[in-house]
C-alpha cells in the first residue's frame, strides 16, 4: 500500500468513525444499552497501561501470582494427568499458567514485526513466570491472530513449573515441549531454553529486467521455448533465506543454544512497474524454532527397547506443533 493509499484509507476510516459514533448515539438514545467503563475498570486499565509501559506486571496480576506460588490459590497446569506423576519421579511441580502477548502494527517491515512481536510476547510471559518463582515454562504454545489491517497479535501461553531442589531462576527457561518431554530432554543433558526467530526480507529491482526478460529481449521469438534458470531471482531468494537462517543462528547463539526450527516460511511477490518505480520483487523468509542447549560430546543416555504395538494405529509421539504462525 503506498502512502497515498494509506491516507485515503485513513480518511475512509474517519468517515466510518463518524458513522459509528452516530450509530452509538442512536443506540444510547434508544435502548440505553451502551455501557461505559466503571471506575474499577478505569483503574484496572490504567494499571495495565502503566505496567506494560514499565515492562512489569499490574499489581493485581502480581498478587494473584504470589498467592498461587505460595499455595493459597490452586495451581494451574495445561498438562495432562500423566504429567502429575513427574511431581514424584522428577520433582516437577506445576505452579501456574502464564501468558504474554503483543499486538503489533507493521509499518515498514512485516518481517521485523514478527521478530519483535514474538520476542515481546515471550518476554511478558517470562515476567509472569518470574512472579511465580518458576524454574521453567513448558508446553509453550504460540498463536497468532490476524488484525483487520497490517497488524497481528502474537500470543504465547505455557505452564510455569518449579523443579524440586532448585532455587527460583532469575531467567526461567522457555520450552515449547511438554513437561514429559522437557524431563526426557533434561535426562539426556539437553535443556530447551527459549524461542529463536530468524527473519529477513529484501527488495530486488532488476536493472533491465530479470535474466528471463533479458533473454526474451535478445531473442524475442526463441527464448520462451528454452529451459533456463532465472539465475538472478534464484540468487536473490537464496540470499534472503540465507540471511534469515543466519539470524536464526545468531538468535540461538544469544541463548548459547542450537535451534530446532519447526516453522519455516518463504514468500515472494512481483510488484509491477508504476510511474515512480520500475518492476521489483519482494522476498521474505521467517524461521521459528525451539532453542536447545546441550553438550554435543555427551551421547544420549536412554536405552532403546524395541516393541510392537498391538493397537490398530501405531503409537505416536506428542502431536507436533507445526502450526500456521505467520
Amino acid at each position: 500500500m503506498s502512502i497515498w493509499d494509506k491516507i485515503k484509507h485513513g480518511i475512509e476510516e474517519v468517515a466510518q468513525d463518524a458513522e459509528r459514533a452516530v450509530e452509538n448515539l442512536g443506540q444510547m438514545a434508544n435502548k440505553g444499552v451502551v455501557r461505559s467503563q466503571t471506575p474499577e475498570e478505569i483503574q484496572r486499565y490504567s494499571e495495565w497501561e502503566q505496567a506494560l509501559r514499565q515492562r512489569r506486571l499490574p499489581n493485581f496480576v502480581q498478587n494473584r501470582m504470589l498467592q498461587t506460588s505460595q499455595g493459597h490459590l490452586p495451581w494451574i497446569s495445561t498438562a495432562k494427568a500423566s504429567e502429575l506423576l513427574l511431581q514424584r519421579s522428577h520433582g516437577v511441580q506445576p505452579i501456574g499458567m502464564v501468558t504474554g502477548n503483543c499486538w503489533y502494527h507493521f509499518g515498514y517491515s512485516w518481517t521485523q514485526g514478527h521478530y519483535d512481536g514474538w520476542h515481546t510476547a515471550v518476554a511478558r510471559m517470562r515476567l509472569e513466570a518470574l512472579a511465580l518463582g518458576a524454574n521453567a515454562i513448558v508446553d509453550v504454545r504460540m498463536k497468532v491472530r490476524h488484525g483487520e489491517g497490517e497488524d497481528m497479535d502474537y500470543g504465547v501461553t505455557g505452564t510455569a513449573i518449579r523443579i524440586r531442589g532448585l532455587p527460583p531462576a532469575a531467567e526461567p527457561v522457555v520450552a515449547t515441549v511438554s513437561a514429559l518431554e522437557f524431563v526426557r530432554l533434561l535426562e539426556d543433558g539437553v535443556v530447551p531454553v527459549g524461542v529463536a526467530i530468524g527473519a529477513n526480507y529484501d527488495w530486488y529491482m532488476p536493472w533491465m529486467g530479470t535474466v528471463a526478460d533479458q533473454a526474451n529481449q535478445m531473442a524475442p521469438f526463441s527464448a520462451r521455448y528454452q529451459n533456463m534458470e532465472i539465475s538472478d531471482l534464484s540468487a536473490f531468494q537464496e540470499n534472503v533465506r540465507r540471511r534469515a537462517l543466519y539470524d536464526l543462528r545468531e538468535d540461538g547463539r544469544r541463548m548459547a543454544a542450537g535451534v530446532l526450527a519447526h516453522t519455516s516460511y518463504t514468500q515472494m511477490f512481483r510488484v509491477a512497474a508504476d510511474q515512480d518505480n520500475p518492476e521489483r520483487f519482494l522476498c521474505r523468509h521467517i524461521s521459528i524454532g525451539t532453542a536447545i542447549s546441550y553438550l554435543p560430546k555427551n551421547p544420549p543416555q536412554h536405552e532403546l527397547i524395541t516393541m510392537v504395538s498391538l493397537a490398530d494405529h501405531p503409537l505416536t509421539s506428542a502431536p507436533t506443533s507445526r502450526k500456521d504462525l505467520i
Binding site: I3, K6, I7, G10, E13, R44, Y45, W48, E49, L52, R53, T99, G100, N101, C102, W103, Y104, H105, F106, G107, Y108, S109, Q112, G113, D116, G117, T120, R124, R145, G147, G149, D151, D153, G155
Partner: peptide
C-alpha cells in the same frame, strides 16, 4: 492513532492490553 502509525513498526498497546486483560 492509525495515521500516526503509518510507516512505523510499533506495538498497538490498546489491543495488546485488551487481549491480556
Amino acid at each position: 492513532k492509525s495515521m500516526g502509525n503509518i510507516g512505523r513498526n510499533t506495538e498497538m498497546e490498546q489491543f495488546t492490553q485488551a487481549m491480556y486483560d
